[in-house]
Write a protein that binds this DNA or RNA. Structure first.
Lengths: 219, 219
DNA sequence: CTATGATTTAAACGAACGTATGAATCATAG
DNA sequence: CTATGATTCATACGTTCGTTTAAATCATAG
């Protein structure tokens, strides 16, 4: 008898996370998932009810922690600021930096979940978008408010747009670590993959802050 | 007998473009496509051979023009510059601005194709990525070289990363015009949809240039 | 007109899909 | 030990998938 260190449910979630990341939701079958997890085909429906519920649980397992952490960091920063507006760079780091630093934390899903998240934000499935919207709403509103206060001279609509652009740049930074290598055909010879991740955070952060602080467009 | 203004092949391409945009490649069936196009189920395999070939043709129809236009604009700018390096903003506008201005050109696919492209760049399907890589390689190399020359003081690796970030921001700007509205839950009350598109180009361009010119990160 | 090749059509193919079922097996409490 | 509920198992259900086939229809040249 083999030593089964992980519960069936966890094994399924891990396999589903990796396969959804690699092939998308529609492109991944229940038989692939249960095959990779080493469990019976019926196990998904027994433990999660359906494929849709499984997908939601894959996200909830990671997003609950991430968004609580984002809230916790923002709470602490605002407490220390004593009512003063926060620095924009601190807000951006709390939101995007917290996300990116998940990539180094293997027990929180690591790079696999981040890639899944990055590509899911542009995916079409209605129920996934609705689920993410609900899951994200509270934390998103808090961060938008913080940015409004931190940048009082910038029109709110402009801030929302730039927040959106930042999401896109970050999503690509994660999801495209290998996806867009084909398209861009770059070689970054001098760095191994762990090095690349460590340097990605400051690199991306510089870019995001540059974009956020850019002169307003004149129409 | 009805007046059929469009050929069968064109009708299929139009339907496939819209449906792939709305539901993704795996999420769209041949029966949906032929149903919306008002043609027989077998027509796709007769005219295009397979679903994969159809997808490639959907992209080729638009990308051929786009990338030729990008080349043409860059050629003309370099001719006028007489060997001098180009302005980074001119290069960025030639690459991303040309793309965005497709959105207003309905006979080039308009906003539908741009959304499809934006979401496909983060999609997983192996054959699509390989196809896009081949389709994009030449124009990508030309623009990278132009940026290297325009920004001689910036390390090439940094330029490539920032080009990548710019792609992500642009992709989200397009694909997420309604996709991420759920997540961000914004209201931009003062603008209708045509207005929004007109203002998107300068808005995004400001953001991209701010990110591209941002101070280099110190490690 | 007739002949010929291109196109469209209805129907079917085998394969893969998500899900459901009932029996077998397991863990645990009494 | 036995009893009970949780879990795993092999198997099958009904649908839908992309693709193929052969006959029907169309367009056009001689």
């Amino acid at each position: 008898m083999e030593t089964r260190t992980l519960e069936t449910g966890e094994r399924i979630l891990d396999a589903a996370e990796r396969l959804f990341m690699a092939h998308g939701y529609e492109g991944t079958s229940m038989r692939q998932i249960t095959g990779e997890a080493g469990v019976n085909l019926a196990a998904v429906n027994y433990h999660f009810g359906s494929k849709e519920s499984l997908m939601q649980e894959v996200f909830r397992r990671r997003l609950d922690w991430l968004n609580e952490e984002r809230m916790r960091v923002l709470d602490e920063m605002e407490r220390e600021a004593n009512g003063q507006p926060l620095k924009p760079s601190a807000i951006v780091d709390a939101f995007f930096g917290t996300l990116l630093r998940m990539a180094g934390d293997e027990k929180r899903g690591g790079i696999t979940f981040l890639r899944l998240l990055g590509r899911t934000l542009t995916e079409p499935s209605e129920f996934i978008r609705a689920f993410l919207a609900h899951e994200y709403k509270t934390v998103m509103d808090r961060y938008k408010e913080a940015l409004f206060r931190a940048l009082p001279e910038v029109p709110k609509a402009e801030i929302v747009w730039r927040f959106h652009f930042m999401l896109g740049a970050t999503s690509y930074a994660i999801a495209g670590t290998d996806a867009l290598r084909l398209v861009t055909d770059w070689q970054i010879e001098e760095e191994d993959s762990t090095d690349r991740l460590d340097r990605l955070v400051p690199r991306l952060m510089s870019f995001l802050m540059g974009g956020l602080r850019a002169p307003l467009p004149q129409y």
